[in-house]
Structures are given as C-alpha cells and as structure tokens.
C-alpha cells in the first residue's frame, strides 16, 4: 500500500508511562476511507494509541500525521480545528450527564456551526434516526441502557460529519443484538459517508467481520498489519494465539514483574 493512501501515519512512535513502556518505536498506517481494526490483548495500549492520535497525549519520540498534519506540533487552536474533523466514541459513551440525548447530539453543532435552532434540531434528529434512537431524544443519559448510550454517543460523534471516527472498544459489555447493531452501523456509516474509521477492540470476530485493514499490537510492538485475509492466514504464533484465544503461547498471561513488585510478599 502506498503512503499516499494513508489518512493517519504513525512513524517511529515511542511512548511510556513512568517506567512502563507502552510503545517501542512503532510505525503503522490507517488507510483513508477504510475501517482499520487495531487489536491486541488488554493493556497493550490500544486506547492510548487513540489518545495519541487525538493529541490528548504527547509521544516521547516519533510523529503522528493526521491528514498530513503533525498533530503534536499544532497550536491549541489549530489542534481544536483538526479535532472538529474527528469523532470519537468513548468506551463509556461519555455523554454529558446534564443534557438530554438530543442536546448531547446537538452540542457539537451548536459549538462549531452557525446553524439556527431548527436546522440543528433537524440534523440531530437525523443523526439519532440513523442510530435508531430518534424516539429517545428527550431522555436523559441516566435513563439509557449501555447499548443505547453508546449509540447516542455514536450519533454525537458523527454530528459534524467528521473525516475520521475512532471507536474505543465499542463492543465491550454489549449483548449480542447490540453488538450486531453496532457492527452494522459502523459499516454503514463508513460506506455512506466515506469516512476513515479506527476501531480499537479485542473482540476478534466482530472486528474482523467489518475491518478492511487490521493492525495487531502486543508487547509494545506491531506484530502484524495487513488486510483481514492476510491476518487470518498469518502463521505468526502471537497472531494465532490472539485470534484463537489460546491460553498458552508467546503472549504472556502474567504482567511482567519489576524490581519493586518482586519485593511484595505473595
């Protein structure tokens, strides 16, 4: 794949929290207009990668280019402008608890557009309709189930018709029907609006069923990257262990012990 196709280009990225190294010199690309699944075991730093892409965190080394712009070198106002073109579905939904469902979806429109109330209401209703929740417009977030809250958050994430939508563990804690609805919605949104999607998840089947491009992280490195077919056909033992959910293999079950943790009596 040529570099020209990349919407996001992660180049030689290193990031650590204290002494714990999350990424060691990783490079990967997120192709434009496709769904990219970033997968890996829990604690690999998948959500951290999204926060680095959104420049909520700063890398120790390396760069992240989003649509050709190094997000970590932008001024605060320029960064906020870039973020207007990004939507993010947080793991918890992160709906504003003091606003109704409709107010949550209208919020980015009120902040970043000069549309009048009627138009904002119409767009918010459309977005809610697209996630099947127009009837829940007047409810408060506390009255929603987990699946509904995530769908509302999705409607809010796409309110400004972004170029990029990032999904942080969208399937976690969802019942099979909600998972199916979310899978269908993510695919539909990507195809109809031609947006670039980054899906962070460890739900193998759901992610592989909709992804065009897959990137698997483990141990602070990219262990596999390619199309869904390439990943399924991979002979890499780490990839096979992860995809098949095998308890034994090269990916360790135990968190690595440090000098300080060894001192703790078991």
């Amino acid at each position: 794949m040529s570099v020209v196709d990349a919407y996001i280009n992660v180049h030689n990225l290193s990031f650590s929290r204290g002494e714990h190294v999350i990424y060691k010199d990783i490079s990967l690309i997120i192709p434009r207009g496709k769904i990219t699944a970033v997968m890996g075991p829990s604690g690999t730093g998948k959500t951290t990668l999204l926060r680095l892409i959104a420049a909520q965190l700063t890398p120790d080394q390396g760069s992240i280019l989003v649509d050709g712009k190094n997000v970590h070198e932008l001024s605060r106002s320029d960064l906020y402008k870039v973020r207007e073109k990004m939507g993010m579905l947080f793991q918890s939904g992160a709906l504003f608890s003091d606003m109704t469902v409709e107010e949550n979806v209208s919020f980015p429109l009120e902040e970043h557009t000069k549309l009048n109330r009627e138009e904002i209401h119409r767009i918010a209703s459309e977005k809610l309709h697209s996630v099947g929740l127009r009837g829940a417009a007047k409810l408060m977030p506390a009255e929603l189930s987990g699946g509904m809250a995530r769908r509302v958050a999705l409607a809010r994430a796409i309110a400004l018709d972004p170029d990029l939508v990032m999904y942080d563990e969208p399937f976690t804690g969802q019942d099979p029907i909600s998972k199916g609805v979310l899978v269908k919605l993510i695919r539909q949104l990507n195809d109809s609006a031609k947006i670039t999607s980054v899906l962070v998840s460890h739900d193998v089947e759901e992610s592989l069923s909709i992804a065009d491009h897959v990137c698997i992280l483990a141990g602070g490195r990219v262990i596999a990257e390619g199309s869904t077919e390439d990943i399924r056909a991979s002979n890499n033992p780490q990839v096979k262990q992860f995809l098949n959910g095998e308890p034994d293999g090269p990916v360790p079950f135990h968190y690595p012990e440090t000098e300080s943790s060894e001192k703790v009596a078991i």
Binding site: Y80, K81, R83, E84, M88, F90, Q91
Partner: peptide, 17 residues
C-alpha cells in the same frame, strides 16, 4: 466525576476547551 466518565476528554475531542 466528569473526568472519570470521560466527559472532559469528550469536550476536548470535540474541539471544545
């Protein structure tokens, strides 16, 4: 609580300070 439920991050992600 807004921080714990990622509402503050959500504002930042929407380009709202």
């Amino acid at each position: 609580l807004m921080k714990a439920t990622e509402q503050l991050s959500s504002f930042e992600m929407m380009g709202v300070d």
